[in-house]
Design a protein around this nucleic acid. Structure first.
Lengths: 359, 359
DNA sequence: TACGAGTGATCAAACGCTTTAGCAGAATGG
DNA sequence: CCATTCTGCTAAAGCGTTTGATCACTCGTA
């Protein structure tokens, strides 16, 4: 005990806050006693209450006592008084699992932090039971609100308990419109941007390899493709829309069908398909972007930025989704109930599409 | 008031818990009043105190009141009384950012949940200031302990404030041994396993493309390679160890040097290098695994499982790191101070190495 | 009959903080 | 010189739980 009295080597600086390890935490009262004031005064000083009248001298003594004791407020006690915590809950059905969707966490965390909130996360892996428990836990901790997110963009049912709190759907939306605030990626604009990259590359005959799996992404990305063509005055040709399972194998498998279409450019439903397609094209002795210009979708870093050549694509704005979700929750962004707010999917140009030098 | 008595449209099912939206939350006292008992009794019932004597009849009335009111305990109040919360803090320098390391979150979350804890996460992106604030926040919320994690395996300094709480280093370790509990991947065993995949494939002359960037991984993976060779009675040949920047471009760039070595098998420092190498080999008209057997390291799902052919590799056990970290923190796993606990990197065999049929 | 033991439930303090009403004294004004 | 205002600070209630001490009974037993 005695030997613990001073930190070894610290003897020269006596007024340094004592390292108390896990000892009994310092409370407001102790600070008050040291400063020779009431706890009320200390509280007022700490919270810099605007209309509290505190003598400068007193203020000094208090702050001095605080640092001397190494006082740390007990957030639980605060919350108990105020009724709501500085937590924002994030329940995810797999955000932590899937690679890039972890950005939702990241964006939410950054934005939350910016406003003095901390993130309480729960990964439910789609397990209903877990999900219920997670939400219950968050409610018990009096979270300011809950972000309910999915790892891929889709409609989702809203658990009953979620309604006991403020909440915002992130990367998903309610099938019945008007019942929940939501923020989702703008698939249509994304599809349009992707197609436009190819159009700007001077291509006219552009194929689209869509996913076989039904989803808002599938519909939106196709719509964007159509929109872009229409805007460019190019008639939409059903023949040029293929379908494949949205992964590398799907993209690879689509190669022959693609080649049968006699096109010079292709827009893939996602980067993984594009990656598979790269292999397929290569096996056919075709080079990218000269024989075939390719764009993907998702901007899945590990893939897109490092394929040979690097893949032009469109970003899924996961980070922004998380951040926007938090802002909506806190009422900083408009959050219409009628329909989901759409976040742009910005195009990312890389070498898989050659720049067009108009002859 | 009167008009609120019943939920509109709910008149037929009077005993259903009232949906109270964000109204004043139900407290213990209200439950007690409804049940005609004291709050103490309600508390005892809720917490199923073993040595509390409660009449069955009373117990009934209480539970009935609870569901009728839709009571939810206030975790903050509980925590205030008990002194520590059911939170485990996770501070990460980029776990949420980098794709597969999100698994640390996932593993920690699952394990924490299993023991009744929730995860409080903070992504510091390496920002010291943020980090300090994050830890402070966690301390204020009286977390049970903190997991301090890094997105790649490395030595790390331990922030002072961290010591005010229980903590475990995850995927990193203290440069001064004996000062902190830690859990890290077993790079050496991983390197050995990777090499063994090739050895089992019947290869004798095996190159290793190591990273140029110094790190425990670089050292460990090399050591494992040496160990495996030694165990197989193959002399270590410095010539066969190349170095490159650990990404796709690095792997690609290493191709020619590799080919100059006249080897039939190569073990890459990571999957990204292997991915680049695939391109390089292909351009040289070589096929995998016939002309060159390849193994990687990391088992980065998006890449490894979907290259053509799929890549044999070794898993970085991020999920397990997170889970083990939590177990250590809670004292469920042994957690020596002297040195970091090593978690196995299990090999994952895929088609990039042909099975050896001994002649 | 009275006593100890058991039973079922309550009392009240404590957890650490915020906040409002209000008090004592100093300064100001008429 | 007294009334008023201002200044600086405190007392105390309250936030929703937990928990050890206690209490009012009812039995069985000596």
């Amino acid at each position: 005990m005695i030997s613990q009295e001073r930190d070894s080597g610290n003897a020269a600086t006596p007024d340094v806050p004592v390292k108390r390890g896990h000892a009994h935490p310092v409370t407001l009262r102790e600070v008050a006693e040291l400063a020779g004031v009431s706890t009320a005064t200390v509280s007022l000083v700490i919270n810099k209450k605007k209309n509290a009248r505190i003598a400068d001298d007193t203020r000094q003594r208090v702050t001095q006592a605080i640092t001397q004791l190494g006082y740390r407020p007990n957030a639980m006690a605060k919350t108990l008084v105020s009724g709501t915590s500085k937590f924002i809950g994030l329940v995810a059905d797999g955000v932590a699992t899937t690679p890039f969707a972890g950005q939702i966490i990241h964006g939410a965390q950054d934005e939350a932090w910016k406003h003095g909130y901390a993130l309480l996360i729960a990964n439910t892996e789609g397990n209903q039971e877990l999900e219920k428990d997670a939400i219950a836990m968050m409610l018990e901790y009096k979270v300011r609100g809950i972000l309910y997110s999915t790892w891929f963009h889709r409609p989702t049912d809203i658990p009953d308990t979620l309604r006991e709190s403020d909440f915002v759907l992130v990367n998903c939306f309610s099938p019945e419109p008007g019942t929940a605030r939501a923020v989702v990626p703008d698939e249509t604009q994304g599809g349009r941007s992707a197609t436009e990259i190819l159009l700007r590359g001077g291509h006219q005959r552009i194929a689209f390899i869509n996913a076989t799996t039904p989803s808002p992404a599938r519909d939106g990305r196709l719509q964007g493709y159509k929109d872009a063509l229409e805007a460019a005055g190019i008639p939409f040709d059903t023949e040029l829309v293929l379908e494949a399972y949205p992964d590398q194998e799907g993209g690879y498998g689509a190669t022959e069908h693609l080649l049968a279409r006699n096109v010079g450019a292709v827009y893939c439903y996602n980067d993984r398909m594009a990656m598979g397609l790269y292999d397929g094209l290569r096996e056919n002795g075709l080079s990218i972007p000269d024989d075939m210009a390719v764009v993907g979708f998702d901007n899945q870093e590990v893939i897109a930025a490092h394929l040979r050549p690097p893949l032009s694509t469109v970003s899924l704005p996961h980070y922004e989704l998380g951040a926007a979700g938090v802002r909506m929750l806190l009422g900083l962004d408009a959050a219409p109930l009628e329909s989901a707010v759409k976040i742009a999917c910005p195009p990312v140009q890389r070498a898989s599409v050659a720049v067009h030098s108009p002859a």
